[in-house]
């Protein structure tokens, strides 16, 4: 590290306390992975609530899952998978110095994320209409189980928190697009795209688990 630091030209993106770009990149990525651990455990708490209540009331979860729209859930799963592909291609575009492709891929990711939220909106709207609201506001009468409201609480907490992460992701990727348009990212420096992509993949992974756990119970 030390002896080639003299040769390493001090580039604009390199913060003063790092020796070279490699160190900066690796440190940022490790930091992001550690942050993803906190995200996993953050959602983990909700999954624990889910597992505990499902183990107590398996019949409730079977009945209530029937009210969720499997098709919309599957469509959203596909949407997020494609968005994961597009953002990883955005990283690749930066690695091969293709600015135009960067912008296209980041733009498609945002479009797909918005699609996800629109589908989510229609799902939520139909639930709200039927009175399937979180416990305190619950009025639906189609499920004969006294804890039915609690299922919807868990459903809204899980998907709602996930939705908030999608919205944060849209914000982050928009910020990447602004920078990418200025030509900030190139093969020597694409750390922000890389770590936002890591975040976005995690959002995808959480949905990969939410889909069977919420929509595919029988």
């Amino acid at each position: 590290m030390a002896n080639n630091s003299g040769a390493a030209e001090k580039e604009a993106h390199l913060a003063h306390h790092f020796v070279d770009s490699e160190q900066q990149f690796e440190a940022s990525k490790l930091g992001m992975w550690v942050f993803l651990v906190t995200e996993i455990l953050f959602f983990g708490g909700l999954f624990v609530a889910y597992i505990v209540y499902r183990s107590w009331h398996p019949d409730l979860f079977e009945q209530a899952a029937m009210t969720l729209d499997t098709t919309l859930g599957a469509v959203n799963t596909g949407v997020l998978i494609v968005s994961s592909l597009t953002i990883v291609l955005a990283v690749r575009a930066a690695q091969i110095n293709d600015q135009r492709q960067q912008l296209i891929m980041l733009g498609s990711t945002i479009a797909l994320a918005i699609t996800f939220m629109v589908v989510k909106y229609f799902e939520y709207a139909s639930k709200f209409e039927a009175g399937m609201l979180p416990a305190g506001l619950y009025t639906y009468e189609g499920i004969e189980h006294e804890l039915a409201p609690v299922f919807y609480s868990i459903y809204y907490m899980l998907t709602g928190l996930h939705g908030i992460h999608v919205i944060i992701g849209i914000g982050l990727i928009s910020w990447l697009m602004v920078n990418a348009a200025k030509g900030t990212y190139h093969s020597g420096y694409f750390t922000p795209i890389e770590i936002v992509a890591l975040y976005w993949h995690l959002v995808d992974i959480i949905w990969i688990f939410l889909f069977p756990l919420l929509y595919l119970i029988e």
């Binding site: 690796e26 990525k29 490790l30 992975w33 550690v34 993803l36 651990v37 996993i40 455990l41 983990g44 708490g45 999954f47 624990v48 597992i51």
Partner: peptide, 19 residues
């Protein structure tokens, strides 16, 4: 680097401990 995989797996381990 394998360490990042370890970081990821540790989160799963602690989730499993919790549940």
């Amino acid at each position: 680097t394998k360490f990042n995989t370890l970081v990821l797996l540790s989160s799963l381990l602690f989730f499993l401990i919790m549940i």
